Amino acid sequence: MRRLNAAALSGVAFALASMPGVSEAQSSVTLYGIIDAGITYVSNTGGSHVIKFDDGVSYGNRWGIKGSEDLGGGLSAVFVLESGFHLSNGQLGFGGSLFGRQAYVGLKNDWGTLSFGNQLDMTEEMVYSYNISGWASGYAIHQGDFDRFNGDRLPNAVKFLSNEFHGFMFGGMYSFGNIAGNFHEQSAWSVGAHYANGPFTVGTAYTQLNDPHGIYAFDPYAMIGVHTFLGQPTVSVDPATGAVTSLFSENPFPVDKQGTFGIGSSYAIGDVTLMGNFTFTTIKGLGQSSHMRVAEGGADWQVTPAFSAIGGYQYTNFEGHHWNQVSAGLHYLLSKRTDVYISGDYLKASSGVDAVIGYSFTPSSTTTQADVRIGMRHSF
């Protein structure tokens, strides 16, 4: 293809600007972001307690640009570029991707939005908000994030998300694996729906990853503290010191499929909102299959317009092991954009499991782990 020179490009731009409707199109671009930082105490990480600076906990640190252009006839072009980062050292999150949080372009009309790129899955769109423990403490995601309740993305995705019709919305997406000769490998798909009516809401979604990889690859010991996974050992133990080393910290555990179904609901009674959810996740690999079940419930009490108290309880069952976790948080708004908070979690796992809260810390040397955090968050 021959290249257009600068003069030709200028002519094309002038011609487009002169076309009816194009020069009159309304467009907007918004810069936004969230910054979260604080100090965390953890009771046991590999046998010792730690007091550390941590960031992106209450909400993930981010900055982004989003925009839209009115194309006429009820149709708009939309885009989002959103970057995650660590405030502690300025480094990018999401494996070093510049726009690892979101990066998409699409078209929107009265029915919904069709978009293309790195995008939030339907588990995030429809049921993520019912993770009440996570609202209390940002560390309190479900065990290992096996059920993708941490607000996860799918790359290379084509996605449709409907507008809301009488309280109902729905969506679906497909993520291409982009592997030559194998359309299935590293692909993923996700579907979901949500309904809201007055004080009542309910959402459900199913998301499946084939050959989870990259930031969603499996290191079972670091994720949930188990010593075996799908019938295979996950750690080596030094007989002299008792030190535990993960066998899959460098090369991920070979998982063929991760499929998760989730449903959640909320009901507001005055200043108190009750929330609950249930997830069922299937993990397949090496000819084996296991299931994780998570049940969670809790409440958000808006004590005053500026002050809220949030608490939640999670129960998890996987491969004969059990986890019980309680979480609580107090949040105070200094303004519409700035708040301070204190939060805490306590996790008790069954025998043979080294407790680890929310895939957030080094696993404990015992079946228990606890944390307390003081932090602040600012949005812009």
Score class of each variant (00 low, 15 high):
Ala188Cys: 09
Val272Glu: 03
Tyr346Trp: 11
Gln369Gly: 02
Ser88Met: 08
Ser18Leu: 02
Gly287Arg: 11
Asn324Ser: 11
Gly352Leu: 08
Thr260Ile: 03
Phe146Ile: 07
Tyr41Asn: 04
Gly297Lys: 05
Gly138Tyr: 14
Gly259Asp: 05
Trp323Glu: 10
Trp323Lys: 06
Pro254Arg: 11
Glu319Ile: 03
Gly73Asn: 05
Asn44Arg: 03
Leu333Pro: 00
Lys336Asp: 09
Val237Ser: 03
Glu125Trp: 02
Ser68Thr: 14
Gly177Cys: 07
His291Ala: 05
Glu82Thr: 08
Tyr315Thr: 03
Phe116His: 08
Ala7His: 07
Pro20Asn: 12
Ile65Gly: 05
Lys284Pro: 01
His86Arg: 15
Ala7Leu: 06
Gly38Glu: 10
Phe229Cys: 04
Leu87Glu: 09
Tyr341Asn: 01
Ser365Leu: 11
Val105Gln: 09
Ala370Val: 00
Ser76Trp: 02
Asn277Ile: 02
Ser129Phe: 03
Arg293Ser: 03
Ala7Trp: 04
Pro220Ala: 10
Gln143Ser: 09
Ala17Phe: 00
Phe280Ser: 11
Gly96Met: 12
Ala13His: 00
Leu347Ala: 02
Ser137Arg: 06
Tyr267Pro: 00
Ser190Val: 01
Phe218Trp: 07
Glu82Arg: 11
Val202Tyr: 06
Gly56Glu: 09
Ile357Asp: 11
Phe165Ala: 03
His322Ser: 15
Asn317Ala: 13
Ala188Trp: 08
Met173Lys: 05
Ala240Asn: 12
Val22Leu: 12
Gly64Met: 06
Thr282Lys: 14
Val303Leu: 15
Asp211Ile: 06
Gly352Lys: 12
Tyr59Asp: 13
Ala8Arg: 06
Thr279Arg: 02
Gly358Tyr: 04
His194Phe: 10
Tyr32Thr: 04
Asn197Leu: 05
Glu164Lys: 14
Phe307Thr: 06
Gln119Tyr: 03
Val202His: 08
His321Arg: 15
Gly298Arg: 08
His49Pro: 07
Val80Asn: 15
Ser27Ala: 13
Tyr315Arg: 05
Gly93Asp: 15
Tyr139Ile: 00
Val237Gln: 05
